[in-house]
């Protein structure tokens, strides 16, 4: 069985962690060929060739692939699809943009955010924001999947796959890239941060969130918020963690003044260590917290910043 893996390439460089974790999922399915599609992707292809377990690397170096536009990248993958039984990519925003398009062009269902490989046809994936895990068996002749990278260990280095340049396919010219705005903050991105500090309605005001930001900065973490805090206008929408916001799984998640509504828990309960600080000892957040502190957050958080 042959597997085609679309590497995550950003700015011409391989996102090693996301790609290496997807390689681990792909190795269970067959011989892995990595596709690097980017403008100036030679360096990314060389880096991909070093990943353990990779048999071949295809490098499609063309300006059309420089900004992950879905239409040209999907057409490229479809042009290669005949040789492969499985087509995989890490479940990043760029692959989630392109892989369902690939699947529809091949007239197969996509399986998104796969968290487990049972066999070549059967996969596990979270539904309802991780509140249930579904095992599905595909009857399609080709399987198109995105891989939830937090569920797999990264493949090691030490491979020496051959790199082959391939030609671009015709660009349908339906879209063009204008600009990227990388988040202005010095803080890490919410969905990939190792530490997330989130505030809830208990913070009480927009100014109160400065306390959350201070704690996050102390820990080198990202700032999150519950939907209640966002709806109350204390925090911007892009900080929202939960079923209707972002799903995070950091090593350390600190929930401050968050009661623990179901929709919030759905977005953070896969975190490795959860800390809850809340003055209401009955708050449901304590049921998922490894360490719970019943205290007034306006006393506890400054003390915590002090102690760390």
């Amino acid at each position: 069985m042959a597997v085609l893996l679309l590497a995550e390439v950003a700015g011409g460089e391989l996102s090693v962690d996301a790609t290496a974790k997807t390689v681990t999922a792909a190795k269970a399915l067959g011989d892995v060929t990595i596709l690097c599609a980017s403008a100036g992707c030679g360096g990314a292809a060389e880096a991909a060739a070093k990943l353990d377990g990779v048999v071949k690397v295809l490098c499609a170096d063309d300006a059309a692939y420089g900004h992950d536009l879905a239409e040209p990248v999907a057409d490229l993958i479809v042009s290669l699809a005949g040789d492969y039984d499985h087509i995989l990519a890490p479940a990043t925003s760029s692959a989630k943009n392109v892989m369902p398009r690939v699947a529809a062009l091949l007239d197969v269902m996509v399986m998104s955010d796969v968290s487990g490989v049972v066999d070549g046809d059967t996969f596990q994936r979270p539904i309802y924001a991780g509140n249930a895990i579904q095992t599905v068996k595909s009857s399609d002749n080709k399987k198109v999947l995105t891989i939830r990278t937090t569920s797999f260990d990264a493949a090691g280095q030490g491979g020496s796959a051959a790199v082959e340049s391939i030609a671009a396919v015709a660009n349908p010219g339906l879209s063009e890239w204008i600009e990227d705005k990388v988040a202005q903050s010095d803080r890490p991105e919410l969905t990939s941060a190792g530490v997330v500090v989130s505030g809830g309605r208990g913070i009480g005001s927009e100014d109160g969130f400065q306390l959350i930001e201070k704690l996050a900065d102390k820990l080198g973490g990202a700032v999150g918020a519950s939907r209640a805090a966002v709806d109350s206008g204390y925090a911007p929408n892009d900080w929202q963690v939960g079923q209707t916001g972002k799903v995070v799984a950091p090593d350390l998640y600190i929930a401050v003044g968050i009661s623990g509504a179901i929709q919030h828990l759905a977005g953070m309960k896969d975190s490795k260590i959860i800390v809850a600080i809340n003055k209401d000892e009955e708050a449901p957040i304590f049921q998922v917290a490894d360490f719970g502190l019943v205290a007034d957050l306006f006393d506890a958080v400054p003390a915590l910043i002090e102690e760390l």
Binding site: M109, A132, I133, Q134, T135, V136, K137, D140, D270, F291
Partner: peptide
């Protein structure tokens, strides 16, 4: 196209402690 073989609960979190 996808046959649902089973739907299960995610792994439960072990009960934590209060500090």
């Amino acid at each position: 196209r996808l046959e649902i073989i089973s739907t299960g609960e995610p792994d439960e979190r072990a009960a934590g402690i209060k500090v």
